[in-house]
């Protein structure tokens, strides 16, 4: 089953590598991974989708938490959420095909963002299956180039947590606090 995680990480060099390396190292296959800024400059937010059963999904979460730069992990797979992917599709659109392509774009509420003599570039935002749908109907005209961002996701309703702070847990390493040294 495809699981969707929202992962908040410290905005520091090398953190993306650590997360990506973890999935490779534990042989979990990332379906898509996006990363970007949040409302807090010191925190980045990732949306990761990965194919995993229930036990694996829990272990992925536990393993993510083992990375010191990971602040919060939310598995939003079974939660009401807004999930969006963005695609730009360059379609061959010669004179006679042009109006058909424009019509299809309109049906999918996609926007034409570039017009050239032999092609049209269409931008579409939406759930993945909507984009898949548009792609399918455009394919007969000739898809010359395509790029997708991978999904970003957010839970519906009142913000659950938002980006966590980075100075919430000030680790006091007084001797008694170190509960179990080797």
């Amino acid at each position: 089953m495809l699981n969707t995680y929202v992962v908040y990480v410290e905005n520091k060099p090398g953190v993306l590598t650590r997360v990506a390396s973890l999935f490779r190292r534990r042989a979990f296959n990332i379906d898509s991974l996006t990363v970007g800024r949040t409302e807090k400059p010191e925190v980045s937010r990732m949306t990761i989708t990965v194919d995993a059963d229930v036990d694996q999904a829990k272990r992925i979460e536990a393993n993510l938490y083992k990375l010191l730069n990971v602040l919060l992990v939310e598995n939003i797979t079974n939660q009401p959420a807004i999930v969006r992917d963005l695609a730009m599709i360059k379609v061959a659109a010669t004179h006679e095909a042009r109006s058909h392509v424009l019509e299809l774009a309109g049906v999918f509420r996609a926007r034409v963002v570039d017009v050239a003599p032999e092609s049209l570039t269409i931008e579409i935002t939406g759930a993945e299956d909507k984009i898949d749908g548009l792609l399918e109907v455009l394919r007969p005209y000739g898809v010359l180039e395509m790029v997708r961002t991978g999904i970003v996701a957010m839970r519906r309703g009142k913000s659950s947590t938002g980006a966590p702070g980075t100075n919430s847990t000030d680790h006091d390493v007084a001797e008694e606090d170190v509960s179990h040294s080797v």
Partner: peptide, 11 residues
Amino acid sequence: AKPQLPGYRPD
């Protein structure tokens, strides 16, 4: 120079 490890939860 206190440790700042907001994402680390060993206990």
